[in-house]
Design a protein around this nucleic acid. Structure first.
Lengths: 225, 225
DNA sequence: CATTTATCTCCTACACCGTAGAACGTCAAG
DNA sequence: CTTGACGTTCTACGGTGTAGGAGATAAATG
């Protein structure tokens, strides 16, 4: 019955987990462009090919790195208050993005292929089912909520929600006031932008919109019965 | 006055735009991982270093590629109906993502550093100002809307909104029904997922939520005066 | 015990990458 | 014509992922 023998301790005391840790740290520290299998090997004092032997390819190693960071996320359980649950999931992802900004874009690349982190998505789906929406809408809105949260978090790590500095403000001031009145009017707001406030307002708006949708469908349902 | 002499026709009839076109096609066809300066040179029958001479570095060439795809986007003008305007901007980005799926993630990377495509963001900002929200909220919600739209579009290109196939469905069926009742209940909905519907429902919900926010602030304002 | 077998680790080698630096050719201006 | 700026190419360097094979080591089997 020992077709696949997996050693828990390798000859040189190397553990897959140790290599993954080193790779994780390198990725977190240097970003994807500065990440290489050879550097991981160098950090561990082992041959690069040993790294690849344990993970198959660079691609799969990076996937494991992404999984590892997801595992560090502390997710709330469903509480029965679906609005609060959605907000907490969003906050959890945002926290993760802020903790590992150079890593976060991976969750778009890999989570996408199939819901890997079932735990957090379960919270989202359960919350949406609690609203009483039909399953088709709950599924679509659940995934869209996911995409929204990931999008906001990624945009934030990429700097989109940082207050604009003097140089950027002057660039915006240079825009034609006839063609860009809205942008011009908002320049002071961009300078003092509060990303926390933007996050909570936006997530709150989305949640409010879901609630509105429930009421709309609810009243339609009433009319039909 | 001819301090900087820029030839409109180079010795071999090469145009910066032609190189950019070739690079663009290569990127669209092969994706970022299959993209290289050397391949661009090969496609044009020129030395790779000539490519770099015109664009400075691979990084900047990719930035130009991203700009180029943005330029192809057809954006609506502000119509006075802010809800319709927001929806149209969202649709425009979603279209762009579907047209160039291997390219779209670049907009997260580069647009983020500063609102490059002022035209589309102007439509968004003007729409939000029309709602009567205070400028601080309009700015935050505008950027969040942007992030949401980019996030949805990127998630869609990465496959997050595709209907799950038999294999994926079986993976989900294997989840513990006690721990994952929500996910399990939605499996049929995931199999027949309609990404168009999800998009419109989600964007609609966000817009509804913004409207709710307006009313809330409006009534508060009434109370104070 | 000895022997086989599976696994781990390392080495070498290959094809590819971005790009610095210098050389060369070509064109417009003086 | 001379001069100088610019476009193009060549060469070379240090880096990359990883295929293939050779040893080393431990466990399974006789």
């Amino acid at each position: 019955m020992s077709k696949t023998t997996v050693r828990n301790r390798s000859p040189r005391g190397l553990d897959r987990g140790d290599i993954l840790n080193a790779a994780f740290e390198l990725f977190v520290g240097e970003g994807e462009s500065g990440f290489s299998v050879r550097k991981v090997g160098a950090r561990m004092g082992i041959d690069p090919m040993t790294v690849l032997h344990h993970f198959g390819s660079k691609e799969e190693l990076i996937r494991k790195i992404a999984d590892r960071s997801l595992a560090e996320m502390t997710l709330p359980e469903s509480s029965g208050d679906w609005r609060a649950d959605l907000l907490r999931v969003a906050e959890a992802y945002r926290d993760l993005a802020r903790r590992y900004p150079r890593l976060f874009h991976l969750h778009f690349r890999y989570n996408a292929t199939g819901p890997a982190d079932h735990h957090s998505s379960e919270v989202v789906y359960r919350a949406l089912l609690e609203t009483g929406l039909p399953t088709a809408e709950a599924a679509g809105l659940g995934l869209a909520f996911y995409a929204f949260v990931l999008g906001f978090a990624l945009a934030e790590t990429e700097g989109l929600l940082r207050p604009v500095n003097d140089v950027q403000a002057q660039e915006l001031e240079a825009l034609d006031i006839e063609a860009y009145p809205g942008t011009r009017a908002l320049i002071p707001a961009f300078r003092t932008l509060d990303s926390d406030a933007a996050f909570h307002t936006a997530v709150g708006a989305f949640i409010d919109g879901i609630e509105t949708r429930c009421k709309t469908l609810g009243s339609q349902h009433k009319l039909l019965t």
